[in-house]
Design a protein around this nucleic acid. Structure first.
Lengths: 194, 194
DNA sequence: TGAAATATATTCACTGGTGAGTATACTTTT
DNA sequence: AAAAGTATACTCACCAGTGAATATATTTCA
């Protein structure tokens, strides 16, 4: 029962996470992942049955942390509902200015796997985005807004638009614009409700 | 001067367009493109100096047709400005229901090339998205709206969000939701203006 | 309790195949 | 003949995945 600093499986996943996010799924080989993780490729295949399996695990490992991050940004923000929603986008703007930022791992993986609709990683990705949407809808519902699900979809669209647009232009200002739009839509819904 | 049905260069570009869009940039090899175009790989390298060069040409070839499509959808729509904007999204919804639809080629390429920020294809992609944004801003300006550039950005964000979100969920309904949000934002801006 | 048996984890060395890109020669057009 | 276009056949690096062997726990039972 040697207490390793970290198990091989953990190191593989950590390394895959870093490389897949930084370089993209198809640009990263298992040879490189194994090398950077300090193990052999066969060990990767011992813990994951295929590259696709590792891709799926990669996305699964980002699910909770990502959602938690959004929640924290939302909860930590001052002001009313529109401002709290806007804060999510402002925090993305801040994150996007970091040189290592490369958009949303789920979206980029979806783009790469667009030719494999049933890929297990896509199921994980879709579920992740759905969780965000459901969370938003719940917040709007609690606030007594009309059509909370519709408004939540608008937020998702602005969020994914933010990730994509910034990736194209490498300009974090788009996140602030999205925050402004989100705030306006939420404020509009509140106006109608109250 | 044999009048070929189409020149080799045209066939290469057409084939690249089809395959890159359908499968993704890194998933498609020049060997396959050459084969499907009915020529040898060396001929590809005669007309394009590298794969990256062909990728750039691929995106460049989609620039005008794409923008023209959006314009047509916009102009053909009945109703006022909000409805015309909404029509763009409704038409995307229709297109997205076709099985061959795989999102936005520019966005998917940007996702794949996220690790190569200066890639020439990215310049083409960014310029394309900028043209859409500028066109929208011009329409809003002519209509006398306040802050036309800001509103145009909101439209771009919803548009790119639409492409991304549908790709993740394979559910064209998100385009209708985006159209609704876009309409509301434009109508809101018109309300303030007049 | 301690040795044998079993399960878990890991390595080395490999395969069959594909990828981007090229050296050279042939063919068509001007 | 010169230039432009295309083909054959190749290189060399890489990639997903595997076969066989080895090391390291963990369990079993004499």
């Amino acid at each position: 029962m040697t207490v390793r600093a970290s198990s091989a499986k953990e190191r593989i996943l950590t390394t895959a996470n870093k490389l897949f996010y930084a370089e993209g799924i198809r640009a990263v080989s298992l040879d490189v992942i194994a090398e950077k993780a300090g193990i052999t490729k066969k060990t990767v295949y011992y813990h994951f049955k295929s590259k696709d399996d590792l891709i799926e695990a990669y996305l699964a490992s980002r699910d909770q942390p990502n959602l938690t991050q959004f929640r924290k940004w939302f909860e930590a923000a001052d002001g009313g509902l529109p401002e709290k929603v806007e804060a999510i986008f402002q925090n993305i703007a801040k994150a996007a200015r970091h040189p290592k930022w490369k958009g949303c791992g789920f979206l980029r993986t979806a783009a790469e796997l667009a030719n494999m609709p049933g890929h297990p990683a896509m199921t994980v990705g879709a579920a992740h985005k759905k969780k965000f949407e459901d969370w938003m809808a719940a917040e709007f519902e609690v606030a007594g807004l009309d059509r909370p699900e519709a408004l939540a979809r608008h937020m998702v669209l602005l969020l994914d638009g933010t990730f994509s647009t910034i990736l194209v232009h490498r300009d974090a200002a788009y996140a602030d614009a999205a925050g402004e739009a989100a705030k306006a839509l939420v404020a509009g819904a509140m106006g109608r409700a109250g």
